[in-house]
Structure formats: C-alpha cells, structure tokens
Design a protein around this nucleic acid. Sequence first.
DNA 1: ATGAAAGCGCTAACAG
DNA 2: CTGTTAGCGCTTTCAT
Lengths: 380, 380
Amino acid sequence: MRPVSKKSYYYLDALSTGNVELSAMEKKPTYPRPVTVNDVAKRAQVSKATAARVLGGYGGASEDVRRRVTAAAKALDYKPNELARSMTTGKSGTIGVVVGDIENSFFGLAVRGISDVAHANGFNVILANSGENIEAEKSALEVLVGKRVDGLIVTPAHSGDTAHLKAVVRSGRPLVLLDRSLPGFHVDTVVVDDRDAAFNATSKLTEAGHRRIAYVSAVKAAADHFPDGSPIAISSVLERVEGFLDACRQAGIADPERWIRRGGTNEPDRLRAVVTALMSEPDHPTAILASDSVIALEIFKTLQIMKIPIPAAVSLISFHDADWTSVTNPPVTVIDQPIYAMGRKVAEILIDRVNGDTAPAAFCVMKTRLIERQSVAAPP
Amino acid sequence: MRPVSKKSYYYLDALSTGNVELSAMEKKPTYPRPVTVNDVAKRAQVSKATAARVLGGYGGASEDVRRRVTAAAKALDYKPNELARSMTTGKSGTIGVVVGDIENSFFGLAVRGISDVAHANGFNVILANSGENIEAEKSALEVLVGKRVDGLIVTPAHSGDTAHLKAVVRSGRPLVLLDRSLPGFHVDTVVVDDRDAAFNATSKLTEAGHRRIAYVSAVKAAADHFPDGSPIAISSVLERVEGFLDACRQAGIADPERWIRRGGTNEPDRLRAVVTALMSEPDHPTAILASDSVIALEIFKTLQIMKIPIPAAVSLISFHDADWTSVTNPPVTVIDQPIYAMGRKVAEILIDRVNGDTAPAAFCVMKTRLIERQSVAAPP
DNA sequence: ATGAAAGCGCTAACAG
DNA sequence: CTGTTAGCGCTTTCAT
C-alpha cells in the first residue's frame, strides 16, 4: 500500500496556492467554544473554584470530588488556557531567548542546552533571532516582555546600547547574558575565556613561524582597535581581538592591527569580497584566525576558489568545533567551546533566579580547548 | 581602554555558580508594579477605555487626547500586557512551529523562512523541537495550544499517530504540515517531490553502473518495505524509499530492499555502527544515498575512518545542499531542496488561514534539483 | 473541604 | 468622540 501516493488534489506550482479569493457564499465553519473550568465544574456538580483547584493542582479536594472533576475534564477534553493562568499568577512558565543568528550551529547547540534544562524544569522556550541587529534585539525583547516571560537569556548584539537590557532587569525580570558580557553591567553572565582562546590559537600560529596573521570576525558593527576606528561593540569580539593582538605583539609582530578584518552576519558575499581582497594583497597573510565556523567555512570556500592551498600557502584556525571541520581537506584546527554546557549553565542560572535566587550576579567563564588538526603549517 | 577586562568577581568553575543558598536575612528587592492602561488613563485624565483605544490602536480619538495619552504612556514607560490583550481578543499574534530536529540545518533554514514572513506580517514564532519523538510532539502541541497560538506549523514525526493533530484542526486552529504529508489527512501541506528526487538520484547511480546501492535514512521509527517489517511512519521517508526502489527495479536490480538502513535522530554512534556494519559486509554496496545532510556527514566521516575512498570505492549522494557539502574532498553530489522557500510558503498559507481563508486544503509540492559534484563515479 | 466573589489587564459592546 | 459596564478564564482571598 502506498497511502500518500493518491493525492486528491494538487497545486503543483507554489505560486498558485493560497490567497484564493472566497466567494461571499463560502460557508465559514463554526467551531465549538473551548471548554473551560466552568464547564467542567458544572458537569462535575461542583463550584468553579473547586474544579479549578483540582484542575490546577493546588488546594485540596476530597477523593470523591477529585475523581468527578477529573472524569468530567476528560470527558469534555478540557485543556487549560495557559494565557488566563499566566494572567492571574503572573508566571508564564516560559523563558525567552534572543540569539544573534539561529542558523549558526553555535547558537543551535546552545539553544538545545537551554531547551533541555528548561523542559526538565517545566519551562518552555520562546526563541527570537536578532540577526545581530540591535533594533531587532530591542523589539524582540519588547515582545517577550509583553508576553510576560519569566526570564530572559540574551546574546547582546552591542555593548554600547544596553538601555533596553537594563530596563528588563530594573523591571525585576531575571536576565542572563550568554557568550558575551556587557562592561559595567553586573548581571549573570556565561562566557568562555575568549581572550585566552584567541591568545593560544594565535601563539600556535606565531610558534609555527607566521608573522603575517589575519583575524577575521563576523560582526558587522565592530572595531576598537579596528582599522576604521569604530568601537568594538561585542565583548567576546573585543576579548578575542585583544588576545590576538597580545600574542602577535609578544611574538614581536609590528602593527598587527592592520590584519584585522570583518565580514557580516549572513552576508557571505561581503565576507567573500573581504577575504578575496585580503588575499590579493601582495603582502597577504600566511595565516588566518576565524571568529566562528560560518566565517571559517566561507574563508575555506574562498581560498579553494582562489586555489590557495591550506596549509601550504595559508594556515587556518577557527573558533567552534563545527561538525564539518573534521571532514574537509585538510581538516581544520579549531578552538573547541563547551557550547552545550554553556547553554545548560545559562538556563540553570536563569531558572534559579526565576525561583527566587537573589545571590549576587555570577560571572561564569568556561574553558576552551584547541583541537589540532591539519590546517596549520609553517609559512611558505 | 578595555572595559571588559576588569571583572570584579569570577566564578571560574561552572559548578560553583548558582544554587547559592540564601540566608533568611537576604533582602529580596521589591519591584514596581508594571504600569497598566489604567495608570496611563489617570495620568492623561481620560477614561480607561479611551486610553486603551489609543494605546491599542483601535477606535478613534481626538488629536488632543491622543497626544496626552501618548505622552503619559511614554512618561510612565507603559508596556502593553500581551497576555491580557490575547485573552480578550482570542488572538495571540503568535504561530507555533514544531520541527523534528532544530539542529539540522534543513529545519534551521525552514525556520528562517517561516520567521521572515511571520515577522513581516506582525506575527511571532514559538519554536518547539520534537526530536522526532511523537510523545514530545504531542506535549509540544499541547503547550502551544494552551498558549493559544493563532496557528501551527508541524513536521509530523509519525503518520500513524495523528489524533492530536486532528484534534487541533477540529478545534478550529489552522494547521499546516511541513516537509511531510499525512495520508488521509486533508490539511494544507508543503512538501517536495521526494519520490522523484530519490528516483532521479538513484537513477544517476544506476546509470553510473552501480548495482548494489544502499539507502540510509535518519528516522529511527521507520520501515514498511524496511527489512524489519515495521511500517514506514513518515511520508517523505516512504516516498523516498519508493522512489529509490523504483529506480533500482527499473535498473533490474533484484531485492533492493536489503540495502535499506536507518540511523536515528541525534544518534551519531548508532548511525556509525550501522554504516560500519553495512560496509563491512563482503558484498557491501558501491553507492549510498543519504536521506539528509547530517546522515551524509556521518557517513562521510565513517567512510573516512574506514579508509574507504569516495567515489573510488563508494559513491555518495545526499539530500539537502548543506553548506559544507561543497568543501569536502570530494565535494558531494546533493539533492537541492527549496527549503527557505518552503518555510516562507508554509507560513504564508498559515497566515492566510489565520486571516480567515477557507479555501480547500492546498497540497503544495516543490521541485528539487540534483547538484552534481564529485562524489559519484562508476563502481570499482 | 468547598463555595462565593473579587480581580488580573485588556478589549468590546453600548450608551451618551 | 468618549465614558460606563461587562466580561475573557483562571486563581485567590475569605467565608462557611
């Protein structure tokens, strides 16, 4: 048997579906009003309050009543209205998460960590994507707060614009920062030792003999030591840049700043142009440090297109041990971050807060680890 | 300046943070009650209803009143309580999405498509992950319905167990299926031509001369033609298997069913064992068709570990043009699906429904395309 | 243990 | 155009 094979009607072209104008005669089906505590109460012959007590699992009830109410609820297929419930209790059982780029597997893994502990603790997760855009972040926050989430986890897109985040904590809603800290903003934070990670990776490169090393970052709106003079807006980026520069200086490399470049989030074309330009310079770098795996993948592709061999002509190290990094030719050396654990940790802290923990803000720094593969060699 | 460098306190070990028991003396800060329409109304010297009208953007108001209310709202930093709003209107402005595996980039892309059109139409998205587990799917649905989402998008994990989905449509909440259809369940659906896709890819393999071709699928709970006799539970899987088998038979291959295998969602070890066993048979296949990119990646890794060269010893084709498939050695031939467009389409249909469209259910089939790279060659 | 009644913050009739 | 009055479905005193 092949049940799915017989379709009664097809709209083979996507563009032809939907939006079909209805004739005024169209019968609009009417649906049964959802069943409420009141309905259950009546059927179980008890008061609304009593029914609500057993349905909501609070307050006591006699065995007899409990049975009757439960039976009535099942018979009527009662489903509680979480909205109404949240309305009166003030708790929604939901935590809001705002990430920079949901398509980046880094965040995907973190979100799974968050979801796992959230669900284990009876919380739901509403996910929002800022696309590293501060305005999108603000509006996402607005919506989540409007929906009365019990707490928020945010990867702040910009450390210069934090009024909206401060407003959240001022309103008493727990907030925990993930992957990026905010200078002067003492709130629970879970990050990795970006500075050390960048320092170590860069040192590995200088030790291999490299003198012209580039750092390519994702974030569009960034820079402090950056060539164009704009301030670096994200803590992790800043720390990485600092670690990178320190390692370069320690190796006696002059003016390492000139090798710092940045692409953009979800802008492969822009990044490709940046890398192409970078590698087209006569004095091009012999090693590149990539700030995340999507950047690294794009660099990898670009180098491949330009027929620049890795690591013979240029060495590569990337942040984030993305799954594909071990199957490329050559497999790429990466900085492994405990992403899933970070997600779990950040959720645990948040849930503790939601449950009333008022300990001083925790600043949690997780260790990274360099996984050496075959994308690093001595400069040509 | 390096603002983030001076941390006032560190909890270097993740395990030492949070969960700090509070002394009973701990001062629990009290936060201001959030401002309501009433507060704004009083400050603006108008009635609650009037204030609500301008704040909610419905009904009319004189220019003077409008100004006063707006000013008061700003002064008080009024933020509407979406919960209360949803309560009375019955609409939450939110659509619920239940996907099989959020970490699979296939779903990641689809979700972005959904989010993009949702936001463009003023809707928010609540995302839930079923992990291809039917029970998780049911409970996710329960929660979303409880939160009174305006509509649902689901990639059903099992076509044999659809009572919960039917209950949703019976309650009048729009539901659109993504990537997988449900036999005998006439509801809006957006899928690709899985059967043709599998047929074409398999044919490409038989044309290259392969006679022993394996199909490796992700889903744990599957099989109809499957060796172990259990029924295939997901339409796309079934269609792909059928396309695969048809192409094999058409090439005169006897008993192609014996080459069908399945791993599991988020179970790399299991899959690796399956592939290892498959390739260890004396009469092992010379070509493999992978049902999605995470399966393909794992196969790729396993083959690499086993030192089985692609495509010299075994050819590989995978569903989904994941970003990494072009940088491996060799780059892998894939079946490209219009995932982002599917996400957009499914959201468009849903939003039309939410807005009252009562046209008959649309069954939308999108075309796929084979991208030929270098993982296919003649059998050894 | 159970019931009656009062709200949560907002929108939706219905008057004026 | 604006104010009054009811609720939405649930939880929560407060009696009984």
